[in-house]
């Protein structure tokens, strides 16, 4: 991802290493290699690369990871504001997100 990194210190990713059972599924599903496995536990190595997709949270069997996930899409945020809901992805298939 040379040159393509987003705003720093903004995402909501948190990992509670106490709860981690070392299954490493977070490092398998993360599309931005945010996690690293060290001595049988997962650690957040590149926090600023997280795009809050929520794949790690969805698959962590011990609920050690948390993130406020959602669509990182300006059009979706605007639709959410208009409808008074969370950001929604309502563009067609393919193209978006």
């Amino acid at each position: 991802m040379k040159g393509l990194t987003y705003i720093k210190n903004v995402n909501t990713l948190q990992l509670d290493s106490e709860k981690c059972n070392g299954c490493a599924v977070c490092s398998v599903v993360c599309p931005h290699a945010v996690f690293i496995m060290k001595e049988g536990k997962s650690f957040v190595q590149h926090k600023d690369l997280c795009m809050e997709c929520g794949a790690c949270v969805m698959n962590c069997p011990t609920q050690a990871v948390t993130v406020k996930s959602g669509v990182g899409c300006a059009a979706g945020v605007i639709s959410g504001w208009i409808r008074g809901t969370e950001p929604v992805c309502d563009c067609g298939p393919g193209g978006c997100c």
Binding site: M1, L4, T5, Y6, I7, V10, N11, T12, P31, H32, L49, C50, M51, E52, K68, S69, G70, V71, G72, C73, A74, A75, G76, V77, P87, C89, C91, G95, C96, C97
Partner: peptide, 11 residues
Amino acid sequence: GASTYTSLSGV
């Protein structure tokens, strides 16, 4: 929205 690396919090 089309990019593959922007987080909701950042947007």
